[in-house]
Design a protein around this nucleic acid. Sequence first.
DNA 1: GGGTAATTCAAACGTTCGTTTCAATCTTAT
DNA 2: ATAAGATTGAAACGAACGTTTGAATTACCC
Lengths: 238, 238
Amino acid sequence: MSETRTQPDTRERILDAAERLFMESGYEGTSMRMITGEAGVNLAAVNYHFGSKEALLREVFRRRLNWLNAERLRALDALEAEAQGGALKPSAILEAFFGTLLKMGRDQSLGGMTFLRLLGRTLTEPADFIRAFFAGEYAEVIERYKKALFRALPEVPPEEIIWRFHLMLGAMSYAIAGTDALQVITGCEVDMNNDGPDAAQLLEARVMPFLLGGLRAPLPQFQLLQVQQSKPEPTKAA
Amino acid sequence: MSETRTQPDTRERILDAAERLFMESGYEGTSMRMITGEAGVNLAAVNYHFGSKEALLREVFRRRLNWLNAERLRALDALEAEAQGGALKPSAILEAFFGTLLKMGRDQSLGGMTFLRLLGRTLTEPADFIRAFFAGEYAEVIERYKKALFRALPEVPPEEIIWRFHLMLGAMSYAIAGTDALQVITGCEVDMNNDGPDAAQLLEARVMPFLLGGLRAPLPQFQLLQVQQSKPEPTKAA
DNA sequence: GGGTAATTCAAACGTTCGTTTCAATCTTAT
DNA sequence: ATAAGATTGAAACGAACGTTTGAATTACCC
């Protein structure tokens, strides 16, 4: 009747529906009709408000990554201010980088576990425009954290640090996105299916020690590889 | 004179093209016309030889996973025979599981790095039939290795081992599949782009120490979590 | 060499995709 | 109240999708 104020922000309804569906079915596996159907809006609304399906995906991420990027930089700034020019502890850097991520999983207004899973899953999407988008969004933050890790681990060759950063991102992404995928493979249900604060807390308690253990693992034998890649700097014993 | 080769390798040409294209563009992002075009065969050939696109994907994996599964079981059998009933070293178990995988990357006749990347990427595909297929293909091998890890690490709670198995799979998959995806994000090129033996060897030297370090990392604080998990009731949420 | 099955081929099938159109409706400021 | 602009609605667009058809061609066995 008169209270049917049918304007609960069409844009937000579309973004919420798209976030959930992209997470569940992937970008190519989600159609515009699925999105507008779940959002309860007209099919043409997506193209009217966002321009295209690609632009919609970008906006889905932008409204979350703005906060994530800013918060990650803020956390690193705080650490560096506290250290007063000294090197940071690797565990503190990981806590700032991944802890900030997991904080999103606990806060429904920041997207919660839904966005975390979408993020982890989308990093492996093969579409070119998606990869290009992420490269641009992440560049500054990754650069800052990479340099912090270089300073925190001066005895580890930078290339090795980059590799392990790589591997930590992969482990974390799978732990988040592979909630049902990999746990089907491992044949055992780990109780991170439920959304909300518990899932993110469990995740943090389980994953952070693993990441730190991997980061601080003994270095591989470099003699052979160093020759192959013709890097002049020798390995410092560790 | 080919007595058993009744086909002019049309089947193999399709499988090779599909393997490469699925790796590059994903399942949904690869069309039948792309596959038959690259294979140089007629569009109808896929449905004639395999029945459907889904069945083609399954066959692409089956011709590789048959070897991988058998070899992984054989490697574990050899370890257990050598141990004569004793527990295995965790590093040996990882070497058997992931070393076998990386052996495929070095052998072009087993699919090489192309198949490895396809495998890592497909594990995150959201399509239901893909997940169901992998669950069936992997079940036996995962079960065997899980039990071996339980015996090798009796002081670690089984659920924690499963989690870390999870995380190791994720790190390895990203290291393989994320060749260009994540290295764009990290903004630094790691030279695993080239196929062939070198890439797999580099991968092994870099990744295995990381995985072992994560697996043997100190356990998290369990007091709080243990209460939640010691209760046998599952508390499943929708 | 003829008969039979296997395979290839061009063409079309029906469906779904993202996108566009344009009239109808709602919002807002004058 | 009314004009102007913003938003929504129903319908259709052309293209691309996976799949099917039926005739033409090839390979194989007796």
